[in-house]
Design a protein around this nucleic acid. Structure first.
Lengths: 122, 122
DNA sequence: CAGTATCCTATCGGATACTG
DNA sequence: CAGTATCCGATAGGATACTG
């Protein structure tokens, strides 16, 4: 190998960096973390806030992120009883990267649509 | 609606922003764009550069990104004949967001592993 | 070299129904 | 409210073989 690669690079298969990228590089993970960036939320509130997500995927995504230390689940002893999810410091550290990615998607969505049309024809 | 949401937000289902996020929020898309950030590359070179990717997924990912205007495919009339992929300006605009995401994965991979171990037990 | 085609398995993801 | 369980079709993704 040369000095071209750094160990732990996302280009390397099976390294922790790649595995970690795998963990967050999917739409639901990005959107859930993005939504929790607004502050702690209940399960049902997240379901409302995030358009198009099913209870199943919301639950799965929350548990995956929890297993990997990005979010924390807490039972609220209030009335009515409920559950609250919040970002951990690790999860918060992800807010800036996915914020940039989300902003890119919002900003360049029209460019993508235009490129698609270009290829289909006038 | 309140002033809480912006139209085109990734939180909204089926809007162009969400669709565009969907397009790039997966591991192979991120890694392929990341790899092409080093400059134009041939198909086989990308396969070597990107660890663990199969020809099938590389091909599929390249075509998807091409269809959506992020990369451009060009046939090289050189010897030996080949094909070269490069980022379009739109693709280049994605380099900073995914660069941040990749750097996050590299930096926080150990935190994730630690969090996993914590939950499994000592 | 640069792919496509096929096969097969695993996961994604929605819908629905049920539980505490 | 906050989920889990089950069913089902669609897609992801690897392996292998084949093509121009």
């Amino acid at each position: 190998m040369g000095d071209f690669e750094r160990p732990g690079d996302v280009l390397l298969a099976d390294c922790p960096a790649r595995t970690t990228l795998d963990l967050v590089a999917d739409t639901w993970s990005v959107v859930v973390v993005y939504a929790l960036g607004r502050g702690p939320r209940r399960f049902s509130d997240l379901g409302t806030l995030i358009g198009g997500i099913s209870k199943k995927m919301l639950s799965q995504t929350l548990r995956k992120l929890e297993r990997n230390g990005l979010i924390q689940r807490r039972t609220i002893p209030a009335r009515p009883p409920g559950v609250e999810y919040r970002l951990t410091p690790l999860g918060e550290s992800l807010l800036e990267p996915i914020g940039m990615l989300s902003r890119w998607a919002e900003t360049h969505a029209d460019d993508v649509v235009e490129a698609q049309d270009q290829l289909v024809g006038v």
